[in-house]
Nucleic acid binder design. Sequence first.
DNA 1: TTGTAGGCGTTATCAG
DNA 2: CTGATAACGCCTACAA
Lengths: 346, 346
Amino acid sequence: MKQGKRSVTITDIARELSISPSTVSRALNNHPAIKEETKRKVITLANKLNYQPNLLALNLLNKKTNNIGVVVPEITSHFFAAIISGIQDILNASGYNIIMCQSNESYREEIKIIENLSSVRVDGFLIAPSSKTRKLDHFVKLKNSGVPIVIFDRDCQGLDVDKVLLDDYDGAFQAVDYLVKSGCKKVAHLGGSLSLSTSIHRRQGYIDALKSNNLSVRDDHIFHTKGFKHSDGIRAAKSLLKLKDPPDAIFAVNDRIAIAAMYVAKMYGFKIPEDISIIGFDDEPHSSYFTPSLSTVRQPAYSIGLLSARILLQNLSNPHDSPGFRREIFRPELIIRDSSRLRPDT
Amino acid sequence: MKQGKRSVTITDIARELSISPSTVSRALNNHPAIKEETKRKVITLANKLNYQPNLLALNLLNKKTNNIGVVVPEITSHFFAAIISGIQDILNASGYNIIMCQSNESYREEIKIIENLSSVRVDGFLIAPSSKTRKLDHFVKLKNSGVPIVIFDRDCQGLDVDKVLLDDYDGAFQAVDYLVKSGCKKVAHLGGSLSLSTSIHRRQGYIDALKSNNLSVRDDHIFHTKGFKHSDGIRAAKSLLKLKDPPDAIFAVNDRIAIAAMYVAKMYGFKIPEDISIIGFDDEPHSSYFTPSLSTVRQPAYSIGLLSARILLQNLSNPHDSPGFRREIFRPELIIRDSSRLRPDT
DNA sequence: TTGTAGGCGTTATCAG
DNA sequence: CTGATAACGCCTACAA
């Protein structure tokens, strides 16, 4: 078998048919001014030869690739995977393809990815910045180069582009307020990395909910983990529950940490929710199948993906004329299941 | 703000510096035969103008894109997400980018994806076929066009390309054999869609394990769900556990279904593992945090990704000369936790 | 109805 | 050390 096979081009077809490449091109594109018979001949041969148009050449010519760059911190998280599904459903339907990249929460990798996607000339970007991203130069450059960008999930203060976010503050507030109203007096927080806007907002929502209920904020009842995995949660939950004066409720930054907290709580002999209520954040598919089923704050991940993609699509067809930028904030929904006590008044 | 900004090219830089494009090109590529001063000037201006090389042009010239197409049925599954992580870790380290696409388990979409990736001239393919894929023409075409392909996770009978698979049969056999040896007499199976090679093999492993232990295979103890989600499992588990003569063990096709089965079992008042043992397949991150923690068959998803990518890389650098194709089979590992009884002899 | 020529951005080759 | 030219595959005026 020959290797490095040259792929077939319109010129090949043209030669074989003794016509010009432009005629082939037109036939393939169903140009009206081409004889039916010629079209048929061309198309038949093209199929036979398994001709695949070379989009590189076309894109170079058109200065348009129909590719969209999607950058997420990690894909192994149901949250981002669901967002991506939403994005894909919209973009594919409009004839766009997705080039998906993970930054692995690394600033360096993120920069490399952005540069690369720039070089392959994607038509637009959908980005959830890494948690390490402080400097915004790479995004600013992008923006200045005129490519449409939509930032989602994680805010980038000071970057003026379209954004689709979630009201993390509100979600946290709802959860903690509920916990207090249901009778918990000592609500602790297992938070995430404070380099993340989402973690910061959830923490603030927690704090403000306590204050608005005239409860004091106790430093020893707040832990922030580095990562978002179960193992991170286990460690933090142990420290928390080993306290002489342990909490009677935990609001966790995400479901994984909450699950870990449930695990530790049970291990230590706490009854859930009688001794301790636990609420997470995300509503992962598994969450409702735990015992007890996990109360949580649901993020409309799929919808976030849909909307982000739709906004990008708009910018694509109608390059930014308006001066302002959209800033869409989804409101999360508190889902009460069995890991938290019921409110007496409901 | 001007829209549709033309991006800066080496010609722009050349003009501004009153030198030729070739010199700019060489300077940018650190060609030895260029005066240091010229290099410096070029590079400085390039940075100032935020020059990004146009890889479309380059790729067109080189007939090489450094892009690899990765096609999976769905991304919202921890299993595939983990495989992708493995792929990405290898490929990125070698300077390749990934174009990731989901077929959503649709044959039609898969074909469209393959055609599109062909057109954008990816250098190679990593594919987990959709469950609906029966005809293999699109893959055969690909192969004939000379692009290296590696199929992973799901076998494609009759397609001669490199493959990285998992010994599903063995995993199932191990699990069921364990269940029987631990004293279970009536082991049921909650299987997946039989259009999937993996489901078929797991089912067969289940059957053969029963037979090899001289247990009869009962049709009423085998259910096959359409999908792989919890909800699919709930329905099937209910049917199974409502039987007059319910099983004393369940081997589920994956963890989600197993979790659903645990949920239903508890709901119906079964004690796990005293009344019924349950074993899943996958070892998802959540699985060890359930109560009881889920016994399962661990698939080395990340490693499958690593190996698939490595094999592709090999084919890339060394276009297929050897006649044979690799067929790597990972052996899964049975992880016994608390959802299954202990074997008396261990 | 079809052919010709030019250009998209880059690099390799061959001359200076 | 640097410049001109051709080529990658395709499309679109313009010409015939």
